[in-house]
């Protein structure tokens, strides 16, 4: 048994598979197969919808559920108001959607549904997804920036009080740092989610292979790995929340740049 190669492939969990024989669905020559990734987006959307719908009872004295939903909307509202000011309120729908969509996706992807035969797919661990979300956020920043300030928006790249000879160099540096933003936004979430899931998968392979290798290995490798997994799982729940928060927070900070310049 011990001689057999490991059967656990830590990267397999990120594989995208078409479901329901939809592999050949196409629009204008592009494949739009309904994959497990899309399936989990649907689940996330439905769960999030149910969650928010439960908070719409509009009672004067809120119940627990309504209180929970109002806590989230209030949290996003406060964040936008703290970062952007009064003008930030109009971005609440977008940032709330972004934050909750990522948060629910991250947490649903962590659920131990594997034990009932359903394999969660964390679509936020794909940079195609995080990239599109970052691109949407960045587009909003650009559109708002140029809409509100026109070409004056470029003054964002020249910090106030820059000496005249430094302006070309500073402009270039600031432009690059600005242009890098969507990539850092997308990669941060993708890397954090993927790393956590890979780590859990690797540790679980230690548990499985160690136990299969005999009682000694099971005690020596499997048990510590299992204990470590429990800790990492807690950490991953934290990361799921933090990454969603960071994504929403950075988006609101970037929108603040566009809304208020410096």
């Amino acid at each position: 048994m011990a001689a057999e190669p490991a059967k656990v492939d830590p990267m397999y969990q990120f594989t995208i598979e078409p479901l329901f024989g939809s592999a050949n669905w196409e629009i204008a020559g592009f494949n739009i197969a309904f994959t497990n990734s899309a399936m989990w987006m649907l689940i996330t959307t439905v769960v999030l919808g149910i969650f928010v719908w439960g908070g719409m009872k509009r009672e004067l004295v809120p119940g627990r559920w309504q209180m929970a939903v109002e806590t989230f909307t209030g949290f996003v509202e406060n964040m936008l108001e703290a970062n952007i000011g009064k003008a930030g309120r109009k971005y609440v729908p977008y940032v709330f959607s972004l934050f909750m969509f990522i948060l629910f996706a991250n947490i649903l992807g962590l659920l131990p549904l594997g034990i009932v035969g359903l394999h969660p797919f964390t679509f936020t661990s794909h940079f195609t997804i995080t990239g599109v979300l970052a691109a949407i956020s960045f587009s909003i920043v650009l559109i708002v920036g140029f809409w509100k300030h026109g070409f004056h928006f470029f003054s964002l790249f020249v910090p106030h009080g820059t000496p005249l000879p430094m302006i070309p160099a500073i402009f270039l540096i600031e432009l690059v740092s600005f242009a890098v933003r969507p990539f850092s936004l997308a990669l941060r979430l993708f890397v954090a989610m993927m790393a956590g899931h890979v780590l859990l998968e690797v540790l679980s392979s230690f548990v499985i292979d160690g136990t299969n290798a005999g009682a000694h290995f099971g005690l020596l490798v499997g048990l510590p790995s299992f204990l470590l997994m429990i800790g990492i799982c807690a950490l991953e729940i934290l990361v799921a929340g933090i990454q969603a928060y960071v994504f929403a927070l950075l988006t609101s900070l970037y929108i603040n740049d566009a809304e208020n310049l410096h």
Partner: peptide, 29 residues
Amino acid sequence: TFSSQIFWLLVFFGIVFFVIGRGMVPKVM
């Protein structure tokens, strides 16, 4: 897979934004 990923993300995130973000959140607030 990129086309299906982007397509379905836009579909579902669009639903989230327009139905939940634009429709439900203002009522909660």
